[in-house]
């Protein structure tokens, strides 16, 4: 904490510029918010549908990301399987890929003429595009890398000797994982989960490309914002504000929990 007093002046100035650059657009949004119309705008059926859908989809996508992302992170960090470098690059790709490209890729794989999607459609009559399941899939696709990267980093830095010690004391593999490894990485797991959730909540490009845009079925908050931008700008700003506040609240909460439980 003593370093706080000795921040070099150039660093301080650049930091101020950095903060201003990130914060000023948000201030712009706040200044343009039609506060008096807010209750009316946010209680419109389209807004409520989008809110509900965004919550359902982003939470489902987060559950999927955790359920299959943590095992991926564990394999990448701990196993000696060859080719992990390539797999790591592959699973982090959605992080840097333009989301629209992700959406096109999903369409080519899971669309009704897609690689796998054609069998889903022909055998079971399942068409993922234009469905809520499609939205969840698109969101999980872009959000999972955040979880994998965060958890893998924690697994790498966690000392494996704790696991070994537990194992020599007679704990089964499952017990070690549950009682030693997971508690050690719990803060990172929480951070990764929340980051993935926030990314899923804000997902736009992959969703509109893969799942389309229908109120109540696939139109999440970011899609509703985009649709409203061309017509009712006030509605778009009101919806953006909700997204902004939700994300900010989560990040504040996360920061607090994460810092308190971090050992240093």
């Amino acid at each position: 904490m003593s370093s706080r007093r000795t921040t070099p002046i150039p660093v301080g100035i650049l930091a101020a510029v950095g903060v201003a650059f990130l914060a000023i657009p948000l201030v712009g949004l706040l200044l343009r918010t039609p506060w008096s119309r807010l209750p009316e705008l946010l209680s419109s059926p389209v807004a409520l549908q989008a809110l509900r859908l965004s919550l359902v989809c982003s939470l489902s996508a987060t559950v999927i990301a955790v359920a299959i992302g943590v095992p991926v992170a564990w394999v990448l960090a701990r196993s000696a399987v060859p080719g992990t470098t390539f797999v790591r690059a592959l699973v982090t790709l959605p992080l840097v890929l333009p989301p629209v490209v992700g959406g096109v890729a999903l369409l080519l794989a899971f669309g009704r003429r897609g690689l796998i999607g054609q069998f889903l459609y022909d055998w079971f009559g399942v068409q993922l595009p234009f469905s809520t399941a499609g939205v969840i899939m698109a969101e999980a696709f872009v959000a999972m890398p955040f979880l994998v990267i965060t958890v893998e980093g924690a697994l790498r830095s966690a000392d494996p000797r704790f696991d070994e010690a537990a194992a020599t004391l007679g704990a089964s593999q499952w017990t070690v994982l549950r009682r030693v490894t997971m508690p050690l990485i719990a803060p990172a797991l929480l951070a990764g989960t929340v980051l993935a959730w926030a990314r899923a909540l804000g997902e736009f490009g992959a969703t509109i490309t893969f799942a389309g845009n229908l109120p109540g079925v696939t139109q999440t908050m970011p899609l509703a914002v985009y649709a409203a931008l061309d017509g009712d700008r006030d509605a778009a700003i009101a919806l953006s504000l909700v997204l902004l506040i939700a994300s900010l609240a989560v990040l504040l909460l996360l920061r607090d929990r994460y810092l308190r439980s971090a050992p240093s």
Binding site: F130, I208, G212, N213, L214, A227
Partner: peptide, 8 residues
């Protein structure tokens, strides 16, 4: 007509 999607 109820469309499956309103595209941008």
């Amino acid at each position: 007509v109820t469309p499956v999607s309103y595209e941008p």
